[in-house]
Design a protein around this nucleic acid. Sequence first.
RNA 1: GUGAGUGUAGCUCAGUCGGCAGAGCACCAGGUUGUGGCCCUGGGGGUCAUGGGUUCAAGUCCCAUCACUCACCCCA
Length: 418
Amino acid sequence: MIQLVRGFKDILPPESSVWQYIENTAKQHFENFGFKEMRPPVLEQTELFKRSIGEHTDIVEKEMYTFAGSKDTMLTLRPEATASVVRAYIQHKLYAADPVCKFYTIGPMFRKERPQKGRYRQFHQINAEVFGVDSPYIDAQLVFMLMRFFERLSIGGLSAHLNSLGCPACRPAFRKDLAEMLAGHSDKLCEDCVRRLDKNPMRVLDCKVPSCREVVADAPSMLDYLCEDCALHFKAVQQILDKLEIAYEIDPGLVRGLDYYTRTAFEIQTEELGAQNAVAGGGRYDNLVEMLGGPAQPAIGFAVGVDRLVELVSAKFPAYDSGPQVFILPMGDQAMEMGAQFACLLADAGVITEADFSGRSLKALMRRADRMGAENVLIIGEQEISDNAALLRNMKTRHQQSIPMDRLVETIRAEFDG
RNA sequence: GUGAGUGUAGCUCAGUCGGCAGAGCACCAGGUUGUGGCCCUGGGGGUCAUGGGUUCAAGUCCCAUCACUCACCCCA
């Protein structure tokens, strides 16, 4: 038997209905905030991700699905969406149409990591990106939009975590001081953090090892190093969130893994997930558009992990298959032929219709209809054919009525309109 | 990539010391010639993950592979 690829997953009914619910809620909600859907391809030139995510990140170094395309270009299944959206924004000169562009995307991403709970090699994200606005107002609006989105999905125990990562003007000084301070205590750091010292010292800030935490407790905070512009920006984000009555925590340990982030970084966490508690994360990337060859345009975005949302939503509202409104039960060849016609005509008329052509006993058909949760059954047998009227039975009330065949579709449709 | 655990019917799982492959649920049929849920009776269903090894004999012991789960690394 051919099995599905490791780390990949089939989304079967009824679970798929939860996905539809989440995606539909996101579309409606984000469009209320002025976002339009963009659907970039899942495949891009490898170079795009190397330049945006950073050549020396784990994602690019060992977690991408990369293979040779035609000639000498390497292709990669996207590990995240932002790079593609930025690429499309630049390539189609979308900044020319209007200075402000707001997009959302929903779709699969691919990362070749070891699968574990809630982390597949094909995972799904809902992204939103805003280009052309450097106002802190938009930072706050994104956080607000996210919190409300999760509330719509009835996810509880939410908290917003905020930090500012500074900008190229102020971050280097912080990074240098931090690295020096940490290096002075390298004997107390865990193995991983010693390695992080040269690679990305800021990541030591969110290490969970107790001895590292002690060292970090005395570490300098980026917030003390922010230049005037960055400090004002961050202050403004907080003020707006206060006005919007969104609770948040300032978390100097919140560090984004990707190189392109600047200023505001945020993460939405829930208590309902255990160790992997982040359901969304994002931040500003004011330099990425230019880095990728576009005009200097500020930008900010976030990504929501859909796989985790599905778990949370399913735990609250278990998925189930809803049954047909009408289940047609024909008996005999002639009835079968009529049932087949009615099945098509009713469905086309907007009634959720199912039919059973197995030719088994009425008892067996009734049992199947009941199990499938049918609201009504339409019985067509010899008696009904000679009466020229089918029998419609409500499965809950057990009420039965005879419906003339020649007006059957209109009659049944009228029955459900009310 | 590293470490640990698991793999037996569609699902959840039992299987003792190595000795005929099991249960519950689900499915099918009958009890009721054309009326569902509850109940009763019966039935179908297995490459015991895969491949090799030890043994008179392997679901059970050993090795390898694969898959899943959890954790690590890393992380929107």
